[in-house]
Design a protein around this nucleic acid. Structure first.
Lengths: 174, 174
DNA sequence: GATGAAAGTTACTCAAG
DNA sequence: CTTGAGTAACTTTCATC
């Protein structure tokens, strides 16, 4: 189909499904990937070599995509966060539209189902920079309209978590 | 576009503003935080001790929030991504609403300006799990309505980037 | 998997230019 | 900031049970 999605969605054969131990390891490494294998094993109930072996497998299988330094947006001057809905004429997944991924301010590009076509997560230094990005969007062929949701406060922002609600011991519902 | 020179906004503990070298270091560490200080220094044009000293400062100042293992959503079974707009009666920043951060499926919670109050980024294993989350939202006092944008394809998803478009020497237009 | 041990890197600190 | 040196710590592998 298209090769544009190859960087984001790696289709790898999952050799084995992740068990509870793998999830615990991932949980620790998501919080702090600098954890040594000694402490890692201790926190999940495994010997250091066993922990190392499993983490190595998690990396090789692609379950761990990469180890990244998460930086404070304010520290690099990016104080403005916004979600931009993009309406297009026809099918919005054009090469020209996806080209905005070259802007470091654009952190996410999704096609969505709903009353809009594409959804962008954008982090800029200022409203002026956001305006520049919107201007570029409107210059893109096929872009009909945009709707921006400027973030006032962020209460939670974290990476993909290995756990699910169903992992909880009990779910209390009324 | 020139930026104001008397722009003195020291609200955090950044002792000094990040220079170009710090941004280059961050750029490398965002891509791969396992890079050794030897290679790190080589790639930015610094000696290993100098690179180490700067990275240590970046961590201490909070510019590097944490080093995290970014995991593949598919590997942990989270194949469904959705953005949920939440409309509330009155001011939506209630304690009850923010309590959903306990769900590992909820990755982001923002209050936004626009035709909605709160914006959630949610990643679940299935549509059924998403339904369960929406049910919990509707059980929350003050929640009037929700609008979900289910992601069909993700074309880009990356952490906060240290660079900006203005860093570029020239802007290439398609 | 657990244990123990070995070898190679790297982190980290400190000297001096 | 650079070079160089040095120790401690960790990674990584392997042989053993």
């Amino acid at each position: 189909m298209d090769q544009n999605t190859d960087d984001v969605r790696r289709k790898r054969p999952p050799e084995r499904d992740l068990d509870a131990m793998d999830r615990k390891l991932l949980g620790v490494l998501v919080e702090d990937a600098t954890t040594s294998y000694a402490e890692l094993g201790e926190r999940v109930g495994l010997s250091p070599p066993a922990a190392h072996e499993r983490v190595k497998r998690l990396r090789r299988s692609g379950a761990i995509r990469r180890v990244s330094a998460l930086i404070d947006p304010d520290a690099v001057g990016k104080t403005l966060l916004a979600f931009v809905h993009v309406d297009t004429t026809g099918w919005g997944k054009t090469q020209a539209l996806l080209a905005i991924e070259e802007c470091p301010e654009v952190e996410e590009i999704h096609s969505v189902a709903g009353d809009t076509c594409m959804l962008l997560k954008v982090r800029t230094e200022s409203t002026h920079a956001l305006e520049g990005l919107l201007a570029r969007l409107y210059d893109t062929p096929g872009v009909k309209a945009t709707r921006s949701y400027v973030v006032l406060s962020t209460y939670l922002e974290r990476p993909v978590q290995p756990g699910t609600t169903s992992d909880w011991p009990a779910v209390v519902k009324g």
